[in-house]
């Protein structure tokens, strides 16, 4: 969905067009869910959080005064929702070990081995919240720093710095597994 189409969908959704809103949900469901999955870990099912994010987005859609900023706005709702849920006592007691990506490992793809996947999951979990939030946002929706700064309610410079710092720390943690230099 290009920017013009998205803008059109937002305007139509604000006028009550549910099909248009559904198209927007289709566009953002995966990145929002993936981001929430990274933020909440095992504390809260990402599907539930994504669902509540979009329900709130629909209900308050007409409060969005800048349709072009829909993406930023929906991620901000997601962040608020995730933070609200994470402040509550944990609902689950399972171990925080995350299953690595389910891909077939190949000899030339060391990154995709289970060991590297587990190490990566641990490294991401080890990041401080601001770094992890910024890095996953930057990764999952390819968001520009300008937009990120609005989602994270900080300056563009700080958003960029958080991403750099997150990548630096991840590189340091993953270098032994990937055969790189830290």
């Amino acid at each position: 969905m290009d920017h013009e189409t998205e803008l059109d969908c937002v305007r139509r959704a604000q006028a009550g067009d549910r099909a248009a809103f559904s198209a927007l949900v289709d566009r953002y469901w995966s990145p929002v869910r993936a981001w929430l999955d990274g933020l909440a870990g095992d504390r809260e099912p990402a599907d539930d959080l994504a669902q509540e994010t979009f329900l709130k987005a629909w209900l308050s859609l007409r409060q969005l005064s800048e349709p072009a900023a829909f993406r930023v706005w929906v991620f901000r709702i997601a962040k608020t929702e995730a933070l609200a849920q994470l402040r509550k006592p944990a609902r689950r007691t399972e171990a925080l070990t995350r299953e690595p990506a389910t891909r077939q490992p190949g000899p030339a793809q060391a990154l995709e081995t289970a060991e590297a996947g587990a190490a990566f999951a641990a490294a991401v979990r080890g990041l401080a919240d601001p770094y992890r939030t910024a890095y996953l946002l930057w990764t999952h929706d390819q968001m520009a720093y300008t937009e990120m700064s609005r989602v994270l309610e900080t300056t563009e410079e700080t958003a960029r710095w958080r991403v750099c710092e997150a990548r630096r720390r991840l590189a340091r943690a993953m270098a032994p597994h990937l055969g790189g230099k830290s």
Partner: peptide
């Protein structure tokens, strides 16, 4: 190369 690989890993690590 390392940070590119890490980014790919992050994109694929979503359950």
């Amino acid at each position: 190369r390392l940070v590119s690989a890490i980014d790919r890993q992050a994109a694929g690590a979503v359950r």
